[in-house]
Design a protein around this nucleic acid. Structure first.
Lengths: 340, 340
DNA sequence: GTGTTTTATGCAAACGATTGCAGAAAATAT
DNA sequence: ATATTTTCTGCAATCGTTTGCATAAAACAC
């Protein structure tokens, strides 16, 4: 890049010591092996000459890259930007850089991304893309790369993951709706092969039970993806049943937007005729029409916590597996109202 | 990472050739220097043994990392995710990985990020954070790293950048408002030290002139940042003038959300009493209440085009500087209506 | 003062790949 | 058949850093 690179040897020559001594001064772990007098001279020369270590040479020797690969389904899904921000803030503070890749929920893309990260010898992975049962997790375990799952967990027990507590979320929602007098509550579930889809559905069931309400199988629709279109289709199906329900709870906010679309098209007043609750509190959910009642999951914290655990795991591969479930909050806006 | 790494030497031993021959076979540029017979044997062995080059060793020798550093102000600003997605799609297809960093519009952070990218020997930079006059640009020019600006351009003429055509955007907005009968149009400008703030303001002025309308200096407010709060404060100032205006055009959609907040608080009907136009068509602008009329800037294309130019510049540092202005579109929704 | 232990520094091998150069073999020209 | 040119492959230096080992010097013990 720059035409004349300053190397360890240049600094050593200037101070009149050997390059290994310069290396020892610059490494905090070996700093004590050199006298204060020589160390001061070296540090002054490093500063004056603008010496910067060659990261490639360091990595070749140490087999460490100080990068972390982060796999997300799609960066333009607003839930993921805060997660990456949380990850970046934590890792950057520890000298790591974040390499981001989109997999678009395509298995082949996920596989080739993992391969690329492997070739780059990332020091660790944060995986936000895995299915509950996913060969990627097995692969990562086999090849020994430290990794943590974020947002989506796998069904394997001995993997580190950071998720929102979907059960608490479900309880909050159903409790809120019950207090508003809702008894017939429909649920639009995300794909069951993702833990977010599955666990939020389980949370819905548990919440209904805890509220002493009966979950009606007819009022539950399973979607193939977390998309607005699927949310709309599911709502259409629910309405076509001509079966009484006064509220719809969805597996995420994007699905809820699809509900909004269908209700509007059918002249049904959201929040008045039918209440709607989403999940995630994605950015700008408060700007929707009507502002969406939703479960706020602390996405920045999910990211930061995942990064924290990964750092721990990089430093000690044998830390016990854990799943950290962060407590969500219910944010009540005007998409929910009393039963008429 | 994996316990037993397969090296070039291992492959060479297996085939009975020298490691330099293996290297030559694997490099498309030197592939022709080896006979087909030996090459076939080598490729078979590479496949069978699962050989993968050590990226650090390659980079140490070639001084190439096949990474690109991307600097954004804040990943949670929804305009930036599509840009990065566009960048990643283009670069990934050419064997590069994207290292993302947030600078939060802090000069010190921007400086240390650039430093970190330099240490990592990124092959190039995409800068989405620079002010119109920014020392970062001078530094990058000095140190010779290929770079391209995206979204925000600098006032220097000999820098490559990809932006939306803010003038065309301004013309479209004012023309649209004029057709709806608006003559008194207020403008809330973003910070003038960013090209987005400055050029969109110039576009407003030019659009007014082209429509034969007189821009009233009192109806122009300059904000210190592109934030919802600043948009709201600016609207408050405009209303406190008690001067007749029937429309507000803002430098971006986030400012427009602040306008919405203030209008709602004052019982003013957006789209009926006062029309509002934003800029960017950020994700979910169509879900706002009311759906926002805005200038759609093709953000994914901005990212992809910036990446394309950067690849070109990495391959040939002497390509002529150019500013590419992508044509925006006006998206009319219900935040604008006829003058009453 | 002599012997033993501790501290400080230099040496050079290693990490794994690339590539210029040299020499041998093959192809071409006379 | 001999001379010249082209092609192919191996050798080893290089990239810049880290770190185990060896040795010399300093500190400590008797």
């Amino acid at each position: 890049m720059s035409k004349t690179r300053i190397t360890l040897k240049d600094v050593a020559n200037k101070v009149g010591v050997h390059s290994s001594t310069v290396s020892r001064v610059l490494n905090p772990d070996t700093r004590k092996m050199v006298t204060e007098e020589i160390a001061a001279k070296i540090l002054a020369a490093v500063d004056e000459m603008g010496y910067r270590p060659n990261a490639f040479a360091q990595s070749l020797k140490t087999n460490r890259s100080f990068t972390v690969g982060v796999m997300v389904p799609d960066l333009t899904n607003p839930a993921f930007a805060p997660i990456i921000k949380g990850i970046d803030n934590m890792l950057e503070a520890h000298g790591y850089s974040v390499i981001v890749a989109n997999t678009y929920n395509l298995p082949e893309k996920q596989k080739s991304t993992a391969e690329k990260f492997r070739e780059r010898h990332v020091d660790g992975l944060i995986i936000a893309t895995a299915k509950r049962k996913d060969s990627l997790i097995d692969e990562c375990r086999r090849d020994g790369t430290p990794f943590v799952q974020a947002v989506r967990a796998s069904s394997d027990a001995d993997v580190c993951s950071v998720v929102s507590d979907e059960h608490i979320g479900g309880n909050m929602v159903i409790s809120h709706l019950a207090q508003l007098g809702h008894k017939k509550i429909a649920y639009i579930a995300g794909p069951q092969f993702f833990s977010t889809g599955y666990e939020r559905y389980q949370g819905f069931l548990a919440g209904m039970k805890n509220a002493g309400l009966k979950a009606d199988k007819d009022l539950i629709v399973f979607c193939d993806s977390f998309s607005e279109e699927e949310g709309r289709n599911a709502t259409s199906k629910l309405l076509a049943l001509h079966k009484k329900f006064t509220a719809i709870y969805t597996g995420n906010d994007i699905l809820a937007l699809g509900v909004y679309d269908e209700l509007e098209a059918d002249g049904i007043k959201c929040g008045k005729d039918i209440s709607v609750v989403g999940f995630d509190d994605m950015p700008f959910a408060d700007k929707f029409n009507p502002p969406l009642t939703t479960v706020h999951t602390p996405l920045i914290n999910v990211g930061a916590e995942a990064a924290r655990i990964l750092l721990e795991k990089i430093n000690d591969r044998d830390i016990p597996a854990r799943t950290i479930k962060l407590k969500p909050d219910l944010i009540v806006r005007s998409s929910t109202g009393r039963v008429k």
